[in-house]
Write a protein that binds this DNA or RNA. Structure first.
Lengths: 207, 207
DNA sequence: GTCTATAAATGGATAGAC
DNA sequence: GTCTATCCATTTATAGAC
């Protein structure tokens, strides 16, 4: 009844609604019927576009994989282009990690889905820890190492600094973003600015 | 077939297995049948001891409520009795918050259950944030305020200090405890010791 | 108190009409 | 590509025997 263009749109709609439901109820509690209802199609249509329920999940995982690797590239380029460092700039970058990475419309719901699944699925646990902790920490460590190299900050333990830096972002995310409305996100941003400013003060990074 | 004493034991066994399954699969994905199988009884026996599935969950919530309020009391008493403060003691107390509170055999699985449920249930979200953030932060703020009062630390913002202190514990918990095996817990403890020592150094709390 | 048996609803998945 | 109709397994919950 539809062209191939329409078909891709349907497939995307199914994936989007599945992601929403997975992140709210968890993978197993989100039924194919419910996903279909949200996407405005019958169950059988879902099985035309996807092999089975797991295939939808795999599609979502791949989608985030692409987003994350693109994000890594753009972060690295932005840093390489930066001329000088200030406490304000550090805080803005930290807010960016929250808003553009953790709260990304694709990353966030997938993380919530994984945070539910990881309790019983080892693979989900690995993926969650990678996206939530390892990738940001690795990236941040590299940034601080380069900052020390260029003389912006004192030469010290880049890893420890990265952990403190990301710790501030992570706590704000968990406290004011996960499961909260959009209004609370502002609290998270304010919290991050405060925390990063204190950190910069101690490290001797100028205002 | 059993006395009333045996019956209470069965009821407890059902609640315990339910908690385990809820924390692994989430409330809705954990079936009454599976809970019964783990507890060694049939579904109908569960319905003899509990009104319905939600009644099991409510029982578990009440149980943790009791544990948490008792813990608050014992923490407060222990602090009131303390004569002096050192960085080592601060680290030990922080490890205690992790091991005796967050990793408590009743608190931890209930937190995991709530962390799954909060994505769709507002009540679970409130309860989660209260147990995970508000209670520890309130308590820690009071402790730092008293420490300043007694001259152990510089008079400053007790709330900000509490947030930094608990932030260290929280990150270690999320990174090395949630969904991890017992072996990783040691990493969390080491991470906490390191973080608290750095914090104490900055605040001028002696070794 | 615990069981067997069963009802009524919902789950994932497929066949075949259009 | 999407639908109706259906299959079969599993779910919550109840009735009644022991």
């Amino acid at each position: 009844m539809q062209t191939e263009g329409e078909s891709t749109a349907t497939r995307d709609r199914i994936a989007n609604e599945a992601l929403r439901l997975f992140s709210q109820k968890g993978y197993s509690a989100a039924s194919i019927r419910a996903i279909g209802a949200m996407a405005g199609v019958k169950e059988s249509t879902i099985y035309y576009h996807f092999k089975n329920k797991q295939d939808i999940m795999d599609t979502l995982l791949k989608r985030v994989e692409t987003i994350v690797s693109e994000m890594k590239k753009s972060f690295a380029e932005a840093f390489a282009a930066a001329g000088e460092i200030s406490a304000g700039a550090m805080a803005t970058v930290a807010e960016g990690v929250l808003m553009n990475y953790l709260m990304n419309e694709n990353v966030y719901p997938l993380m919530m889905t994984l945070s539910i699944e990881r309790m019983q699925a080892e693979e989900a646990q690995r993926e969650y820890k990678r996206i939530m902790f390892e990738l940001p920490l690795e990236h941040q460590e590299a940034v601080f190492a380069q900052m020390a190299e260029r003389g912006f900050i004192a030469r010290g333990d880049a890893r420890a600094l990265a952990e403190e830096y990301f710790g501030i972002i992570h706590l704000a995310f968990e406290r004011f973003c996960v499961g909260c409305g959009k209004a609370d996100t502002d609290k998270a941003r304010a919290q991050i600015r405060r925390g990063i400013k204190l950190l910069c003060e101690r490290e001797g990074i100028p205002e």
